[in-house]
């Protein structure tokens, strides 16, 4: 079942305004089509500036899309007002990159989770739900009484994940959620995310710049470059048989820690579209 569908989504940011000159636009998200199927984790890979973070925020309606349709669970949310969308927000949640600033330091863990809970549920059984959530991410119930500054980076990300789980989202967007953690902790969090999918009916959109990390939990990978998706295929397929030169560049860097002689720098034509190369492997033309 299709969980999320992006159709021709566009978001341009205006550059600095100069007197008597036409404003240049940064094409953060440039006519993107994307589909996320329930149960199939999608990885969105690209360097900083590729637009992947903006895309995630557009889906969360933290930015307003300039044009295009964002269809969540069959409903086009791009046209909804803030008030209309509010009750639907619980269906898609996000874990942010910086574990040190995504939790309000003045709240206890209990307070942080309760805040999320009261937006989607009645007060009855709240404590039980919060305890279930904090244990699901591998932390002890006693953590509920503590404050964020008492935890390490990896533990804070777990708390952030728990906060999202409390709302029972169908789609969880992880925006570089493990990029600032060290490799062993990264691994732990990734394993946690994998195991959570046994307990909760949630699908991940995993945004990252590192293919090596993404392939660990994603079934499909989309590569983003300058606001457009340039390649889309199953994880194994992309790693084994990258077709687009930019994908090859990312792969070499992530796996072999090597750089290519000429970094990919071509502009992408206005009318480029993803073409199916057979067995679901799409490349832009």
């Amino acid at each position: 079942m299709t969980l999320l569908e992006l159709q021709n989504v566009r978001k341009y940011f205006p550059g600095p305004k100069h007197f008597l000159e036409e404003t240049q636009y940064v094409r953060a998200v440039d006519h993107v089509d994307l589909t996320i199927v329930e149960g199939e984790n999608l990885g969105l890979v690209g360097e900083s500036g590729s637009g992947k973070t903006t895309l995630g925020r557009l889906i969360m309606k933290l930015h307003k899309a300039d044009s295009g349709a964002i269809i969540l669970n069959g409903k086009d949310i791009s046209k909804l007002s803030d008030n209309e969308f509010r009750p639907l927000r619980k269906n898609v949640q996000m874990v942010f990159q910086d574990p040190y600033s995504s939790l309000d330091p003045r709240f206890t863990v209990h307070g942080l989770l309760a805040e999320a809970d009261q937006l989607s549920q009645e007060k009855k059984d709240r404590n039980a739900r919060l305890e279930k959530a904090i244990q699901a991410v591998g932390l002890d119930i006693s953590c509920l009484k503590r404050y964020p500054h008492e935890f390490s980076g990896g533990e804070r990300q777990r708390i952030a994940i728990a906060r999202c789980l409390v709302m029972n989202p169908k789609l969880l967007i992880l925006d570089e959620a493990v990029s600032s953690l060290d490799v062993l902790i990264q691994e732990q969090v990734l394993q946690l995310l994998k195991s959570l999918q046994q307990q909760y009916p949630v699908t991940y959109l995993f945004i990252s710049h590192n293919l090596r990390v993404v392939r660990k939990i994603c079934h499909k990978i989309a590569v983003m470059y300058r606001g457009k998706i340039v390649e889309l295929a199953a994880s194994d397929e992309i790693l084994r048989n990258p077709l687009h030169p930019y994908t090859k560049e990312l792969l070499t860097a992530a796996i072999d820690y090597k750089s290519v002689d000429k970094p990919y720098n071509e502009p992408i034509g206005e009318n480029s579209r993803l073409i199916d190369n057979g067995n679901g492997h799409f490349v832009i033309n």
């Binding site: 710049h209 293919l211 090596r212 560049e249 860097a253 820690y257 090597k258 750089s259």
Partner: peptide, 11 residues
């Protein structure tokens, strides 16, 4: 840094 930049800094 991004992976591609990291590769370059290594070199």
């Amino acid at each position: 840094l991004d992976v591609t930049l990291q590769a370059r800094i290594i070199e």
